[in-house]
Amino acid sequence: MSDDDLVRGLWSTMAEGWAAGDAARFAAVFGPDVDFVTVRGEDLRGRAAVEEVHARLFASAFRDTRLVPNFLLVRPLADGVHLVHVTTGIVPLGVLTHAQAVVTRRDGGWEITAFHNMIPNAPRGTTP
């Protein structure tokens, strides 16, 4: 399996955790020291914070939803470091997010070490 495939696999694990409402599984792909910016601009530090916030999400309006990732870019920056851009649909809510992530190989595995997530604005001239 190529490094690109392994990096993309992190989103498969994330999606599985989301669909199951399992915040620990969702957060497992993030490094213990991840810097994570939510769509609301919250700055989360560490995997435990990501898990805590997502446990609350999975107990709210996001219960029984799933993530559908679409990769826009998976680019190696250096040995063991990839930049990833991915849009993710939250189904069936119709929410679309766009994330930029730095993915790093550590201890033989890959983990997300920086993650910035946002909800894109509608293109100019369109009605939301």
Rank of each mutant, 00 (worst) to 15 (best):
H54G: 11
V103M: 09
M118G: 15
M1W: 05
V37E: 09
V84P: 06
V34W: 08
R66I: 10
H116Y: 02
A19K: 07
D5V: 08
F58C: 01
T113F: 14
T38H: 08
V103N: 01
H82G: 01
D64V: 03
D43P: 00
L67F: 14
A19N: 05
R63H: 03
M118Q: 13
V34I: 14
M14Y: 14
R56T: 00
L72F: 04
T104A: 09
V95D: 00
G94A: 09
G125W: 02
R56A: 12
R75A: 15
A19V: 04
I112R: 03
R106D: 08
P69L: 08
V103G: 09
I119D: 12
D107Q: 15
F58I: 05
A99M: 03
T127H: 15
T65I: 08
H116V: 13
H54A: 08
V84N: 05
G109D: 14
A122Q: 08
T88V: 15
F36Y: 15
H116R: 09
A15C: 10
A59H: 00
E51H: 01
A114T: 13
M14F: 08
V102Y: 06
I112V: 15
V50E: 05
V68H: 10
P32V: 09
L93H: 11
R105F: 10
V95T: 08
L57W: 13
D33W: 00
G125L: 06
F115R: 05
L44P: 03
A24V: 07
V50W: 02
P128C: 14
F71M: 00
Q100M: 14
G9R: 02
A15G: 06
S60L: 02
V53E: 10
S2Q: 11
E51L: 03
T13I: 12
G125P: 08
P69V: 06
S2T: 15
G41D: 03
V53Y: 11
A49W: 05
Q100C: 06
V53R: 15
I90F: 01
V74D: 01
R75C: 03
G94K: 08
T126E: 10
T113W: 11
A114C: 11
G31C: 05
H85Q: 13
G46M: 04
A27E: 11
A49N: 09
A101C: 14
T87I: 04
F26M: 14
V34E: 09
P123N: 00
R56N: 07
N121R: 13
V103Y: 07
E51Y: 03
V103E: 01
M118L: 09
A28C: 09
G31R: 03
M118Y: 04
A20P: 10
D43K: 04
R47M: 01
H82E: 10
D33A: 11
W18T: 02
G31Q: 07
V29R: 06
G125E: 04
R63V: 05
H98L: 13
L96G: 00
P92C: 07
T97L: 11
A15P: 04
R45H: 15
G94F: 02
G125V: 05
P76H: 02
V39H: 14
P123S: 07
E51A: 15
A49H: 07
G89D: 15
T13C: 06
V29H: 00
L96Y: 08
P76Q: 11
T88P: 00
V102E: 14
L83V: 04
V84S: 06
